[in-house]
Design a protein around this nucleic acid. Structure first.
Length: 204
DNA sequence: CTTCAGATGCTCT
DNA sequence: GAGCATCTGAAGA
């Protein structure tokens, strides 16, 4: 399992968003290793994207990380209670990013469970197990990520992204979520989801 | 399963 | 002061 190098991130956000599907997000929290397979991403295309925090070149303390080198974590706080994990892409001065919107737990289930529900994994209902990290706010909570972790280097820190050996999957492309304020850009097809044929008991 | 209201505080104007 | 890249639990079907 190899850590993705800097070059992976020094490309356009749309390409990186697609290629992040199936990769492994590795987080060390309280000396426990947590791993997720990335299952949903969303690209934000910088100064020309009305949905991007940096639209029109807006540069503020919050967005400063996005203006830095690709391969770092841009983590911010919204709705008064949720943290969002993004991967900065492109070189310095090119403020693009990929929002990690969902993941499938592979390792460290009990720890992630404690972080999300203050419960043991085995105590969860099936629906809770399935939805442990199927949204950006949930994923950040399950991985113990907050603004304090903003700017982490994804090539060398307690938050890494590695190559995986994912089961085969297809990619579903849709518009982005929760950006109605962005006008026409709200319909741009920049949301990418990992899809696997679901098992059918009746029709194999 | 679906819909819906309410929570809650940081960020920029 | 307004708005936000969301989640949860309760209630209905």
């Amino acid at each position: 399992m190899n850590v993705l190098g800097r070059d992976f991130y020094l490309r356009d956000a749309k390409t990186v968003a697609k290629e992040l599907l199936g990769k492994r997000l590795v987080r060390v929290a309280d000396s426990v290793v947590l791993t997720m397979e990335i299952s949903e991403t969303e690209a934000y295309l910088g100064v020309d994207d009305p949905a991007c925090h940096c639209f029109g070149g807006r540069r503020t303390p919050r967005t400063e990380t996005m203006f830095g080198l690709g391969g770092h974590a841009y983590i911010y706080f919204v709705y008064g209670m949720h943290h969002m994990l993004n991967v900065v892409t492109g070189g310095e001065g090119d403020p693009c990013a990929v929002l990690i919107r969902g993941g499938l737990p592979l390792e460290g289930h009990d720890k992630m469970c404690q972080l999300r529900f203050q419960k043991e994994w085995e105590a969860l209902k099936p629906a809770q197990k399935r939805s442990l990290a199927d949204g950006p706010g949930k994923l950040a909570k399950a991985l113990s990520l907050t603004r304090a972790d903003n700017g982490l280097d994804l090539t060398a820190s307690d938050l890494l992204i590695c190559d995986g050996e994912p089961e085969p999957f297809t990619i579903t492309v849709t518009p982005r979520i929760g950006i109605d304020y962005a006008g026409e850009a709200a319909s741009w097809p920049l949301n990418f989801k990992l899809c696997r044929a679901r098992q059918s008991r009746t029709n194999p």
